[in-house]
Measured scan of single mutants.
Amino acid sequence: MSIQHFRVALIPFFAAFCLPVFAHPETLVKVKDAEDQLGARVGYIELDLNSGKILESFRPEERFPMMSTFKVLLCGAVLSRVDAGQEQLGRRIHYSQNDLVEYSPVTEKHLTDGMTVRELCSAAITMSDNTAANLLLTTIGGPKELTAFLHNMGDHVTRLDRWEPELNEAIPNDERDTTMPAAMATTLRKLLTGELLTLASRQQLIDWMEADKVAGPLLRSALPAGWFIADKSGAGERGSRGIIAALGPDGKPSRIVVIYTTGSQATMDERNRQIAEIGASLIKHW
C-alpha cells in the first residue's frame, strides 16, 4: 500500500482519535458579512469528516447552483462504474471539434489522439474542462443518470439537468442544476469515506481534487503551510461562485467545507476574496 493510499485508508482512524471539535460562531459572522459585502445569498456548511456531524452552517438547506462543483460527483459516478466493471479508466475516447464547448483548455489539445477516461476526469476536476465533463456525462448516460446515481446514494436534493455550459445559467428560483450545502457536503463525505467506492477509487477521487489547479484564489489562499486540501470550485452566471473541499491540518483532511453564493453584482475577484476570507476565519478558529 502506498503512503497516499495509507493516508486515505486511515482518515477515519486518525479522526477518531482527534480531540473533540467545537464550532466557532466567528466564522458564521464572516459568512454573514460576506453576504453584506456581496449583496447576495451565501450558503455555508462545515462537517466533521469522521462523524458527519454538522459543526457550523448557514442557509444549509437553500438551493444554490452547483456550477462546476458537480464534476466531482460526476467522476465519482464514473469511478463507481469502474468498480462495477462497467468502465475502464484506460479506455480512450475520441471526439471532434464539434464536441468542444466553451472553456476546454485540455480537451482542445487532444482532438487528434483523444483522451482516456482517467485523463478526462483529471481534466474535468483539476482544470474544470467543460468538454471533458460533457464527454464523461455521455459515458454514464447524461445528466439524468448522474441525478439517479445521487438518488441511489441517498441524495434526493442534488440534481443535474443540463450539460456544460448551460448548467451554469443560475436563474433565480430555478431548481435545475442545483444542490443544497448540506446535501453536497453529505454526498461528498460519502464519496470520500464511505463504502460506495473502493479504496482505490476513493484515493483516485481525492487525488484529482488535491491536484486542483484553478481554485488557488479561494480556500487555498488562506491555508497555512502543512495543511491538506482537496477541492473543486465552480463559477456561473449572475454572480455565482462555489467551492467544495476536504481539508485539515497535519497533512490530512478532517472536515468537509461547502460554500456557495449566487445573485451578486460583485466582480469575480471580490467573490473570490470573500470566500478566501471565510476560509481564513475557519482556519483561525479551527
Rank of each mutant, 00 (worst) to 15 (best):
T186D: 14
R273E: 14
A15L: 15
M1D: 01
E169F: 12
L146N: 02
G114D: 04
D161F: 03
L49E: 04
D129Y: 00
D33A: 15
V82T: 09
L223M: 11
S57N: 09
L218A: 04
S122L: 15
R91A: 07
I243F: 05
D155I: 01
H156R: 13
M67L: 09
Q274R: 11
L137C: 06
T69K: 01
R63I: 09
I256G: 02
T27L: 08
E62L: 07
L247V: 11
A34Y: 06
L79M: 11
H5G: 06
G239F: 02
A170T: 08
T261R: 03
A280R: 14
P105M: 06
P249F: 04
L167A: 08
A182M: 15
Q204A: 15
A215G: 09
G194R: 09
S254C: 14
A200Y: 13
I125G: 01
L219N: 03
F149I: 10
H151V: 13
H285F: 15
N168W: 03
S128C: 00
S104H: 06
V8Y: 15
L136I: 09
L100R: 04
S51T: 15
P25G: 08
V82M: 06
T186W: 15
V82Y: 07
V72F: 03
L223P: 02
I171K: 14
A230Q: 02
I93V: 13
S96E: 12
L192D: 01
L47T: 09
N168D: 07
P65M: 02
E62T: 12
D177G: 03
W208I: 03
V42K: 00
L205Q: 02
I93A: 04
E119G: 10
R271T: 11
G236A: 10
P181M: 02
L196G: 12
K252R: 13
I278H: 00
M1T: 01
E145V: 12
H5Q: 12
A148Y: 13
D231M: 04
E62Y: 08
D212I: 02
V106C: 09
G263F: 04
A215S: 09
M184K: 01
K190C: 10
W208H: 03
N130M: 01
L55D: 04
D83E: 10
R189N: 11
F14A: 11
C75A: 12
G242W: 00
K232C: 01
L160P: 04
E56I: 05
F17H: 10
A170V: 12
